[in-house]
Simulated assay, not measured.
Amino acid sequence: MGANAAAFASLLRGATNLSQCRWILEQLINSRYAGDIFLGNLALQMFGKLHGIGDARALFHRMAQTGRNLFSWSIMISALCRDGHHREALGCYHAMNLEGGIEADMVILSTVIGVCSALQNLCEGRKLHDRVAGCGLESDTVVHNALVSMYVKCGCLDDARAVFDATPTREKDAVSWNVMMAAYSSRGKFQQALEIFNDCLLHSVQGPDAVSFVTAISACCGLKDVKQARALEELSCSHGFLETSVAVQNSLINLYGKCASLSEARLVFDRIASKTALSVRAAVMEVMLRREEKFCHRFVIAFMLPSILMWCLGLVF
């Protein structure tokens, strides 16, 4: 890359608004680098990031004459998805296939599978699954997660589970386990969701993350099983999330409330070092639903009163 080309690249990367990007593109078009695919792709990418989808379309069509490559199509499809133009993104993918000479990579395939998920287009989703399988990319973590999500969104839980089971455990990340858990939980299959969580604990290379625990706790809410709730609290503590994750803390308070075990909800609340408005709200709501006024007063005094006093001090000083 020449010095001037590097300068154009630096200017494009530094653009913070569409006006700047348009001005730089105008200078680029009037220079000897007008047909440079790398710089064209970079401008296309910046228009996408700045949500200038109209500018991105115009540049992409102009690049049909000056030159487009795999990255050009990938950037355009992603930009359309980012701005919610899912049908157009799918059309762009088909246009790429018709143009010939360009083979979709896993980035494009996973993006377009996400498009099918958003559109709940099962027919196109299955075609993409066949293509992925033919390319040997089915076990790729990103593609695998996109396929599972697509089948879940299209209401095909058995197909989602088949893809999940066919993927080697070493290729599954936390998202893989969480998507499958959430799919079961959202359909009232709480026990199956917890079975996936247990498999994650036993077999996952990375182990569960905070989202895994929140999802499992949510499933446990459906069962209202206080024994399971205590087990999840112990596990979240041993994994360090009870002390560090507000979402896990609030979910546990809510869970114990659903299990009508307010004394244990209070113990979780008391363990929270830095109480947030959300944790207080979770606790107070459960207490109020159970008409436990004594506990409710304690929660209010423990958090709300100090907050009000601090706010008043802020007004004074």
Rank of each mutant, 00 (worst) to 15 (best):
L242A: 08
K189N: 09
S307V: 12
R68F: 04
S218Q: 06
Q206L: 14
S251A: 14
S212M: 02
D105L: 10
K189H: 13
T66I: 13
S19V: 09
F299V: 01
N121V: 02
G257T: 02
H297W: 06
A9R: 07
F197D: 00
I308N: 08
P306V: 07
K224Y: 03
L157T: 07
I29M: 10
R298G: 12
T111G: 01
F60Q: 02
H239D: 05
A133F: 10
C296K: 07
L90Q: 00
S186N: 15
C200I: 05
I75M: 02
R32Y: 07
M181I: 15
D83C: 14
S110F: 11
C154F: 09
V280E: 14
G84I: 12
I29P: 00
F295Q: 10
T276F: 13
V132Y: 01
G52M: 00
A58S: 15
V148L: 08
G91R: 13
E293G: 15
G54M: 10
M96Q: 02
I272P: 05
K227I: 11
A247S: 11
C156N: 11
S139W: 01
L252W: 00
A182E: 09
Q228K: 06
L44D: 02
V143Q: 02
A56M: 03
W177V: 12
D158E: 15
F317K: 14
R87G: 13
W23N: 04
N69I: 01
R281M: 04
W177N: 02
H86L: 12
H203A: 11
A247Y: 05
A282E: 01
